[in-house]
Simulated scan of single mutants.
Amino acid sequence: MSGLPYRAAVGVMLLNAENKVFVGQRLDNALEAWQMPQGGLDPGESAEEGALRELEEETGIARDLVEIVACALRQLDYDLPEDLQGRLWGGKYRGQRQTWYLCRFLGRDEDVRIDTPEPEFRAWKWAEPSELPAMIVPFKQALYRAVLAEFAAHLRLAP
C-alpha cells in the first residue's frame, strides 16, 4: 500500500482570543480523540479556498469570522495505518498531504455550529496548543507536532 499516492488535503488550526485551538470529536470514531478541522481538496480548488470551505462545513463558522494568519511553509503528510488504507477514500490513497493554515477566529463561541448539514463532530472545545499531539489518534501525532513546529513563532511556543 505504501506505493499509493497521498490525497491532496488541507488543515486549519483555528485560534480563539485566548490562543486556544478549536478541536472536534469525530462522529465516526469511538475513540476519545480530538482533531482540528481538515479534509480533502475538491478538483480545481485552491488550498486556501479548501481550508475555508472545510472549516465552514465542519464547524459552521462563516468565512467572514475567520482571518488567515499564516500558511505552513511546507506540506505535511501522514500515512494511514494499513488496516485503514484499504477502507478509506476507496483504497486509493496511503494518507494525506496537507497544506495547513493558522487562522484567527473573530466570532464568539455561539458562532460555532457543529450541527451542520453533514456533521463530522459530536463535540467541540478549545484546547491548549501544547496538548494537541496527545489528543489526536496515534497515527497523526507526528503530524500535529509538525503543525505546532510550523506555527511555533505565531503561538509563542518553542518548536
Rank of each mutant, 00 (worst) to 15 (best):
Arg26Leu: 02
Arg26Ser: 03
Leu27Ser: 10
Asp28Ala: 00
Asp28Lys: 06
Asp28Asn: 05
Asp28Leu: 02
Asn29Ser: 12
Asn29Tyr: 05
Ala30Met: 12
Ala30Gln: 15
Ala30Leu: 15
Ala30Glu: 15
Leu31Ser: 08
Leu31Ala: 14
Leu31Asn: 13
Glu32Lys: 11
Glu32Pro: 13
Glu32Arg: 13
Ala33Phe: 13
Trp34Met: 04
Trp34Tyr: 14
Trp34Gly: 00
Gln35Ala: 00
Gln35Leu: 11
Gln35Met: 08
Met36Gln: 10
Met36Thr: 14
Met36Leu: 14
Pro37Gly: 09
Pro37Ser: 15
Gln38Met: 09
Gly39Ser: 12
Gly39Glu: 05
Gly39Gln: 09
Gly40Gln: 11
Gly40Glu: 11
Gly40Asn: 12
Leu41Asp: 08
Leu41Glu: 02
Leu41Trp: 03
Asp42Arg: 08
Pro43Trp: 01
Pro43Ile: 09
Gly44Met: 10
Ser46Glu: 03
Ser46Ala: 07
Ala47Asn: 15
Glu48Gly: 07
Glu49Gln: 02
Glu49Asp: 01
Gly50Ala: 01
Gly50Glu: 00
Gly50Ser: 03
Leu52Trp: 05
Arg53Ala: 07
Arg53Pro: 04
Glu54Asn: 13
Leu55Tyr: 07
Leu55Cys: 13
Leu55Gly: 12
Glu57Ala: 15
Glu58Lys: 12
Glu58Trp: 08
Glu58Asp: 10
Glu58Tyr: 00
Glu58Cys: 04
Thr59Phe: 13
Gly60Leu: 11
Ile61His: 05
Arg63Val: 01
Arg63Asn: 11
Arg63Trp: 08
Asp64Trp: 09
Asp64His: 08
Asp64Met: 03
Asp64Val: 08
Asp64Phe: 02
Leu65Met: 13
Glu67Gln: 15
Ile68Phe: 07
Ile68Tyr: 09
Ile68Leu: 14
Val69His: 05
Val69Asn: 09
Ala70Phe: 04
Ala70Ser: 13
Ala72Arg: 07
Leu73Met: 09
Leu73Arg: 15
Arg74Asn: 12
Arg74Ala: 12
Arg74Gly: 11
Arg74Asp: 12
Arg74Met: 11
Leu76Phe: 06
Tyr78Gly: 14
Tyr78Leu: 15
Tyr78Ala: 11
Tyr78Phe: 15
Asp79Phe: 07
Asp79Thr: 09
Asp79Trp: 07
Asp79Leu: 12
Leu80Gly: 04
Leu80Val: 00
Leu80Glu: 00
Asp83Ala: 07
Asp83Lys: 10
Leu84Gln: 14
Leu84Ile: 06
Gly86Val: 07
Arg87Ser: 00
Leu88Met: 01
Leu88Trp: 00
Leu88Tyr: 01
Trp89Ile: 01
Gly90Arg: 14
Gly90Cys: 10
Gly91Val: 05
Gly91Met: 13
Lys92Val: 08
Lys92Trp: 10
Lys92Met: 14
Lys92Gln: 10
Lys92Phe: 11
Tyr93Ala: 04
Tyr93His: 13
Tyr93Arg: 00
Arg94Pro: 04
Arg94Tyr: 03
Gly95Lys: 06
Gln96Ser: 10
Gln96Thr: 03
Arg97Leu: 12
Gln98Phe: 12
Gln98Ala: 11
